[in-house]
């Protein structure tokens, strides 16, 4: 574990806590893409298939359980909670994410570290996470005003993978033969997809104005 990876995990955890706070405090999920939440639930389930087979550390197991449980809880809230589900922007959250799932799985069948069920599903989860934010970014562009908590959620969700890139660079420089080509390439693509959001987020922070993404 290095400081970059810890910062990345804490930033990721913070983003999830911000989203839970937004839904719990406002009893609303307006501006949140359910499709992105569902994609993240798929990402965590298929990435942590080794949850019960490989014990790395208490921290590792604890965080995996938190990520899986929180993503499923958020999807449940957005689908079934009597109050929260009413504020779901159903008509705006229309990204056909089936293609993202299909393309990620197809790529995982081609590019993986080992041709095993666990490794192919791991690669699938890496590729899917890279594009999982797309429905959310599209929804932010369509729904004019973005509330602060939702904006902060997306910001920290994008920032966490940037910390992971620093972690991979650090490990590549300090550990012999360390490579993470699949996660590294995918992580760069994932972080790049946030580029324009980061720009408009910075503008809104500098001008102390409401976050607005151009349609």
């Amino acid at each position: 574990m290095n400081v970059f990876r810890l910062a990345g995990d804490m930033t990721h955890l913070l983003s999830i806590l911000l989203l839970l706070l937004k839904i719990y405090a406002t009893k609303s999920c307006s501006g949140v893409s359910r499709k992105t939440q569902e994609l993240y639930a798929i990402v965590f389930i298929f990435r942590y298939l080794d949850l019960f087979t490989d014990f790395i550390s208490v921290y590792n197991t604890f965080m995996k359980v938190v990520f899986i449980a929180s993503s499923l809880a958020i999807v449940w809230c957005m689908r079934f909670h009597p109050v929260v589900r009413r504020s779901y922007d159903r008509e705006l959250d229309t990204f056909r994410y089936f293609f993202l799932v299909g393309a990620s799985f197809a790529l995982a069948l081609i590019w993986h570290e080992k041709f095993s069920v666990q490794e192919v599903f791991w690669a699938f989860s890496i590729y899917l996470e890279a594009v999982a934010i797309l429905p959310q970014l599209v929804l932010l562009q369509r729904s004019g005003n973005v509330d602060n908590l939702t904006g902060q959620y997306v910001f920290f969700l994008g920032a966490y993978r940037a910390f992971y890139i620093l972690n991979w660079i650090y490990r590549y420089l300090t550990e012999p033969r360390f490579t993470r080509w699949i996660a590294g390439t995918s992580g760069v693509v994932q972080t790049a997809l946030y580029a324009d959001f980061f720009y408009y987020y910075f503008i809104s922070w500098k001008n102390n104005s409401k976050l607005k993404l151009p349609a």
Binding site: H12, D54, N60, K64, E113, K114, W122, E175, F178
Partner: peptide, 10 residues
């Protein structure tokens, strides 16, 4: 592949 390839990252 060495044991360090166990996925130790989240």
């Amino acid at each position: 592949r060495e044991v360090d390839d166990v996925k130790d990252e989240l």
